[in-house]
Design a protein around this nucleic acid. Structure first.
Lengths: 136, 136
DNA sequence: CTACAATCTCGAGCGACTAGAGCTTCAAGA
DNA sequence: TCTTGAAGCTCTAGTCGCTCGAGATTGTAG
């Protein structure tokens, strides 16, 4: 039996966050000790680690909810889990692409050689519309 | 003189967001028409476009506030603006690196060949701790 | 003058936590 | 057994950067 602090240490999820997960129904209501403190078993720890990993991978809470629901029914075809993961992969790739564009732009902007703010490229670049590459 | 809708169209920032920016002091209080509607000039549009660009680049509102304060004093050395941009560049690079790691992991996970959830790698992978590469 | 679109203010809601106040319980040592 | 201090409890509110809706008012074209 683990206390919430044990769970936090073993999973890397803060106690407050564990309570929050319970509150939003991502974790089931934990059993309680005599004095009303939460007590957990292996299964709950496993689920929490699952959640932690998924969150680390940037999976949203609703998506995690779906995955948990899916995994509750092991006979079911896994195409749907696959779909969730793939969709997420696609958004991650988009984010990477977008960030790379930003990196290039900022690199250009940040290599400012001026001495005073008045002639500073950082500030001018942000104000000038024609430097954008047709994004808006 | 532009209405808030004009500003929205020209800058790509929603009217509600323009009001919000005014509320948090990112834009100054706009002048008003006879009937209390906001009216803007060129300068205000320029600043809004500046803000929009910076936000698009992922610069936080506090950082934008700093940049605006800096640009109000054109004699000042621009080293500080430079520093803000560079710091931001560093965080963007970190994000990219992190996302790439996620991409690799998800790629592995998402290539699931199982037929049922019970043997699905997507779900198993998320639950297993030894698949992490020492991140926690 | 009449429609109707645009704008106004105010307040709440989003996602995913996080922090703090003020109280109770647990566990280890004397 | 008692004490003490860490750890837990609940509840509320705050974070960030918007976004939306309700219900009232204003602007403008025909």
């Amino acid at each position: 039996m683990f206390s919430i602090g044990e769970m936090a240490r073993r999973s890397g999820v803060k106690a407050a966050t564990i309570r929050y997960y319970e509150q939003i129904g991502l974790l089931e209501q934990a059993g309680r000790s005599h004095g009303n403190q939460r007590r957990y078993g292996r299964d709950e720890l496993d689920r929490l680690v699952f959640i932690r990993h998924a969150r680390d991978l940037g999976v949203s809470v609703p998506a995690i909810r779906e995955l948990i629901a899916l995994s509750g029914d092991p006979q079911r075809p896994c195409a749907q889990a696959d779909r969730i993961a793939s969709a997420h992969l696609a958004t991650i790739r988009e984010k990477i692409a977008r960030l790379k564009r930003l990196e290039a732009e900022l690199e250009r902007i940040a290599s400012c050689k001026a001495h005073t703010v008045g002639e500073c490229y950082v500030l001018r670049a942000l104000g000038e519309h024609d430097l954008c590459e047709g994004e808006h």
